[in-house]
């Protein structure tokens, strides 16, 4: 089966990203596919490349990247939710005349249309917030 996940909680503030990650691993090990993960609302913070938790804590961004690398899971970040929270790609930073950026591949900034498309395409769609 094909799964899609919507994540709306920030790492280290909410349990949602960790629950989602645990579920994702379990679903993949049962032979299902995860077509995509969409980060919305405070969930966009999962994508920050400046995230630097202490060494004894899981780096959530790296965990998502590992999921992408091993299972080809698309990591989409809502652009409007990200920009207003200070998360942006190099391209968006340039467009807004800013020096710094903190969203890099494999995370992709995209619109809400992508969320609707993901929900329509998947056999199962789940929210973690």
């Amino acid at each position: 089966m094909e799964y899609g996940l919507l994540i709306m909680g920030a790492p280290y503030s909410s349990a949602a990203p960790h629950s989602a990650l645990r579920f994702a691993s379990a679903v993949l090990s049962k032979g299902h596919r995860i077509a995509g993960i969409f980060f919305y609302q405070d969930g966009v913070h999962n994508a920050s490349s400046l995230m630097t938790p202490p060494q004894d804590e899981l780096n959530m961004r790296e965990a998502w990247i590992e999921l992408h690398q091993q299972h080809n899971v698309a990591l989409d970040v809502c652009i409007a939710a990200a920009l207003r929270r200070g998360l942006m790609s190099e391209l968006e930073a340039k467009r807004h005349g800013l020096v710094n950026f903190n969203i890099e591949a494999p995370f992709e900034l995209t619109g809400l249309g992508q969320l609707l498309e993901l929900q329509q395409r998947c056999d199962r769609f789940m929210t973690f917030a």
């Binding site: 709306m8 579920f23 691993s25 049962k30 056999d123 789940m126 973690f128």
Partner: peptide, 19 residues
């Protein structure tokens, strides 16, 4: 367990989260 969680999602086409 987590496997059981996945099974519940296999058995139910629609899933709603309350948070």
């Amino acid at each position: 367990e987590m496997d059981g969680f996945v099974e519940l999602t296999e058995q139910n086409e629609r899933i709603i989260s309350w948070y």
